[in-house]
Amino acid sequence: MASQQTKIMAVVAVLAALAIVIPNTNSFVILLATRALAFSILVMSLDILLGFTGLPSLGQAAYLGVGAYLTAILATKFQFGLGYDFWVVVVLGILAGAALAAIFGLLAIRASGVYFLMITLALGQCVWGLAYRWNSLTGGDNGINLRTRPKFGIDLAHDVTFFYLVFGFFVVSLLAMYVLVRSPFGRSLAGIRERELRMKILGYNTWLHKYIAFVIAGGFGGLSGVLWAHTAGIVSPENVVLTTSVDALLMAVLGGAGTLVGGVIGAFIVFGLREYLSTLVPWWQYVLGGVYVATILYLPGGVMGIPERIRQWRAVSGRAERQ
């Protein structure tokens, strides 16, 4: 069992490598990595619910959507958030995501398991319906194009500069969520995931714990939306549709639920397959679907669970040899 310290060192090393290697590649890879990082924040926030609290949400794209639409509407209709006021938009995006989660959480938290999945799906569809149909505000099916990225001292239109900004937000989010899941609050969330009744009997207000986790996840979702809007340069119903929520869920499971960084690996694998492989072969979606199916059937712990699987397999074969 690798100690916690070695794991942290490994994550830091990978992050440092990313920060050094990515800017020296071509613009295609830089943009791909930026997208994956921005989306990773959403996937990690979902992992707080799925992996650490045991709440499988199927409507997480709604929070990304709120942050993204807020950014796009402020930028195109009010020319707001394109200078130093970008930081105000960041705060507003987080607050909007958290506020939406605060409303949705009131409805959703009572349910658990598959019912939680269904109700978050319904809530996510509400947001999608508004994005898709409310033409005067959201541009309907066409979405909203953002013509420029913010400029404040540094010019974010420059892809490498923008990559570092998203990278910075990503690292801060990862750190914040890591602290959260390691805190006593995070420990009680794990307790709820394992056995909610016992936590209730011990005197924990489990509803409130789950609700707060839901709101925090919404806030990070909003942040990821703000970054996503400027990364993609367009915000459309595509960003809040059911399949985007499903993507986030599958990325978390693919990487390994309950590990935070697993979701990031999942995001990089999926974005890599989808955007890189699709330029090479027309049947890339078979690979993606196949990877999902194989992961769920044979690797319940996701990519992060591979070392554990190898150890188990070695232990079993070792015992077989001795006999």
Binding site: F104, I119, L123, G129, R133, W134, N135
Partner: peptide, 20 residues
Amino acid sequence: PEISYFTLYAPMALILAVKP
């Protein structure tokens, strides 16, 4: 038309919240 999907899914979410 502008809020037509909302009028479909919002009641659905409410029903689920009250009676899962």
